[in-house]
């Protein structure tokens, strides 16, 4: 470039182009005067970040992640445990229900048996009472009947005597009695 400076600048001036001037900064990336500065600060930054990461941040995050994994595993185990417990409780409840039902059945059966026994006893007692009553009645009836037969006999004898007497005969007591008795039997 330097070799053609005169001509180049002249042309540029002619058409109003200010090469590498007029605020143009060129490419700061290729300005090697501050590369040392940038590299120095880069090295410092990298060392700082490396120390931050390896000493503090990464172990801490790894620990947190591991802890979370552990917590999740524990929680899952605990949940499993609780599920098992709930299952056991349900089984126990079912068992209790079955037992209670059996107990209830037993109590019902016992009560039924008791009641049956009471009932039987009562029926038997009633039966005997009824039997006694009917025997008594029977006896009373037969007594009454006997009484009635006697009365009828007496009435019949008296009536026969009267009839015989009215007919003019003399009633033989023995004959009358025998006749009445015979008649009564027939």
């Amino acid at each position: 470039m330097a070799t053609e400076t005169t001509q180049g600048d002249g042309l540029a001036d002619a058409i109003g182009v200010a090469e590498h001037s007029g605020g143009s900064t060129g490419m700061p990336q290729l300005d090697f005067t501050h590369w040392g500065n940038q590299m120095f600060w880069l090295a410092l930054a990298l060392i700082a970040i490396y120390l931050i990461l390896s000493r503090v941040a990464l172990p801490r995050i790894a620990a947190v992640l591991a802890e979370r994994q552990g917590t999740i595993t524990n929680d899952i185990a605990a949940a499993e445990d609780l599920t098992n417990k709930a299952d056991a409780a349900e089984a126990a409840y079912d068992q209790a229900l079955v037992d209670a039902r059996a107990e209830a059945q037993r109590i019902i059966a016992a009560a039924k048996a008791d009641m049956q026994a009471d009932l039987d006893a009562a029926i038997a007692k009633a039966d005997t009472q009824i039997a006694a009553k009917s025997a008594e009645s029977e006896k009373a009836i037969s007594e009454i009947r006997a009484g009635a037969v006697e009365s009828v006999k007496a009435v019949a004898k008296d009536t026969v005597k009267e009839i015989v007497a009215a007919m003019g005969g003399k009633a033989d007591a023995k004959t009358v009695t025998a006749a009445v008795t015979a008649r009564m039997k027939g």
Partner: peptide, 29 residues
């Protein structure tokens, strides 16, 4: 004058990056 240790705008924003890493990964956790 930019010496190798001069605190330039490049150095400023480089240290900002370090600060952000610190805030994010150390303060944040």
């Amino acid at each position: 004058v930019v010496n190798w240790f001069t605190f330039t705008n490049a150095a400023l924003w480089t240290s900002f990056a370090v600060a952000v890493v610190f805030i994010l990964l150390v303060v944040g956790t």
